[in-house]
């Protein structure tokens, strides 16, 4: 139990650490890959989306990979 509790914050930090890196990629390229309307929108919109990308990066990564394959 104690070990599990000590692992949880480490997992959270790793998750959000990867999320921050993904957020940078999402701002630069990723958002436009899953939604073409982003290219026609201001850069501030992409900046606005970064926190969501940090939080939901696994879902978005899967979406981007699927889009790249098809």
């Amino acid at each position: 139990m104690e070990t599990l509790i000590k692992i949880i914050p480490v997992l959270i930090l790793i998750y959000f650490g990867i999320g921050v890196l993904f957020g940078i990629y999402f701002f630069a390229k990723g958002a436009a890959k899953i939604d073409s309307l982003i290219s026609e929108s201001k850069w501030t919109v992409r900046l606005f989306l970064v926190p969501g990308a940090i939080g939901l990066w696994p879902i978005l990564l899967i979406k981007i990979l699927k889009t790249s394959k098809s």
Partner: peptide, 23 residues
């Protein structure tokens, strides 16, 4: 707070469209 963060950060129509309304 983490849940509220996920909700606040996806409070934009981009997320509604790209996550699907159901998700």
């Amino acid at each position: 707070l983490i849940i509220l963060f996920l909700m606040a950060s996806t409070s934009h129509d981009f997320w509604l469209k790209n996550l699907s309304p159901k998700t």
